[in-house]
Amino acid sequence: MTEIGVIPSLLRICLILVLISAACLLTTRNLSSLVRTYALQSLILVAIAILLGVIEQKNILLLIAGITLASKVIGIPWFITVIQKRIRIQQDLKFSYLQPGGALVVSILLILLVYLCFSRVLHDLVTQNSLFFLGSIIGVSLMLMGLIAIFSRQLAITKVIGYLSMENGVLLFGLFVTELPFITEFVIMVDLIILVLLTTILTVGMDSSIDAYMNRLKEFHLWSEEEVQA
């Protein structure tokens, strides 16, 4: 019994770690540590899914943990790292709209807002199971923090990581609020992978296409060499 008693507090610790990783995603400038943070965040999600699976005695959660591990902890971060080497950008220094400090303040406000809204809507869940209530709040908060990352980051590749973090938030929310059919979770993962493939390939295209376009202009002698350089 004591083991079961430990698990909820472990879950709480994991949830807090998720929030901390989201804060790191908002503030880190180095691209490779961004990807590592994302992989770590997904790993915490895997841990949460396994712990929940132990509490609720459901094998489906272990399956979800499995595909999350394969796709989000290993697959996608590896792919982004490969792409990142191709485009030779190490850092995303510029922020638009919000600087990291401001972004953190806004996220804290958003978490409070989500808490206030959900305590009114999900009142049954608050009284029944405070852990699940906390989980759903942190899920939505993580999603909103990912949204801030998309807004405030400028490079497409960091935006992709913001999007992925949002998706982690949705997964977290889904884990705590209800159990979706496994096939739904699986297809979403496939959708996510296609999306990441496409966006990252487009980011590479974005760098190479400018040259290709300029070359084509030179080919047709529309612009002289100097004008293209300028």
Binding site: M143, M166, F173
Partner: peptide
């Protein structure tokens, strides 16, 4: 992609 997909995540909630 970014506008539609991020908004669609809200739909998923």
């Amino acid at each position: 992609i970014f506008v539609c997909s991020t908004s669609m995540l809200f739909s998923f909630i």
